[in-house]
Design a protein around this nucleic acid. Structure first.
Lengths: 151, 151
DNA sequence: CGCAATTAAATTGTGCACAATATATATTTT
DNA sequence: AAAATATATATTGTGCACAATTTAATTGCG
């Protein structure tokens, strides 16, 4: 059977709509932390392992310096991270949490549960969907016809 | 069990990464049509039902005029659609395909199958994932704590 | 060593998303 | 009918994404 051009049939649109709805949900949760959703993702990575280079952060988030540099400058302006050139290799920039950045983690702690609640899904269903999405991402990213892609 | 702050555990990030990977895949497919991915979505709606107002288009795509107006102006510059005020209500703007816009559908026809191929997924699995995502979107959007959201 | 090639970030430019506001037209109320 | 209200789109401003280019530092090679 041939796939159609109907909007309703497109996996891509279901994905795109869900991703935007999810970001909108986070926007409200993150408002009081003063973070945007992509900034929150960067903070998640830093809370797990502090002092990463821009490149290492980008590897986790699948984002390049064109996106991360201005985002990290905003986090720096907000007093949450510091950006310093690595002495042993001045090409890379180390991103390190400030005390305020580390402290923000406490305010972020309830967010994952709040979000789970908003999805109205059973935790095991969330896990299954999440893993399906990871598989899909891996297939789309590693596809050979994808060579030369960002980042 | 408590949900964690680990990036790897987040449904939101799996969704965000998958959506961006999907868009990147489309970017290559759409290059020869001269369309961006959101422009392609708008064209999908118009190919299904021509002559829609900006608002009706936004209802389908869950986008507001702040996003659509400039996008549609670019489609107009590309000669694919026309934008004219509705005579019976000059507040709304009718978006109508040009001959070139209608003709572009032929070039778009193979795309859904090409994409299905790139996902490496069985069609029935794609359908199931798509419907799960629609359910999730509906839950996130209709959530009462979501009132006052865009659009 | 000296220089080409490589690597890491930053910069520039385009196109979304989306909040907030403005503008213009239509409808309702008084 | 005039004023108030509502509706539809457009505009403005911020913050991503991402391609392409630039800048600066490091590595490799002859």
């Amino acid at each position: 059977m041939k796939a159609t051009l109907r909007l309703d049939d497109q996996l891509c649109f279901a994905l795109y709509a869900a991703s935007r709805a999810m970001t909108a949900t986070y926007r409200r949760l993150l408002e009081e932390l003063g973070l945007t959703y992509p900034q929150y993702l960067a903070m998640l990575v830093l809370w797990e392992r502090d002092s990463l280079t821009v490149g290492e952060l980008g590897e986790q988030l699948l984002l390049d310096s064109g996106t991360l540099t201005p985002l990290l400058k905003r986090l720096e302006s907000a007093g949450l991270v510091s950006r310093v050139r690595r002495p042993e290799d001045e090409r890379s920039v180390l991103i390190t949490l400030t005390d305020a950045g580390r402290a923000l983690r406490d305010k972020a702690n309830p967010i994952p549960d709040q979000l789970l609640c908003q999805t109205g899904m059973a935790p095991e269903d969330v896990i299954q969907l999440r893993e399906e999405l990871k598989t899909l991402t891996a297939r789309l990213v590693t596809d050979t016809s994808n060579e030369g892609n960002t980042p």
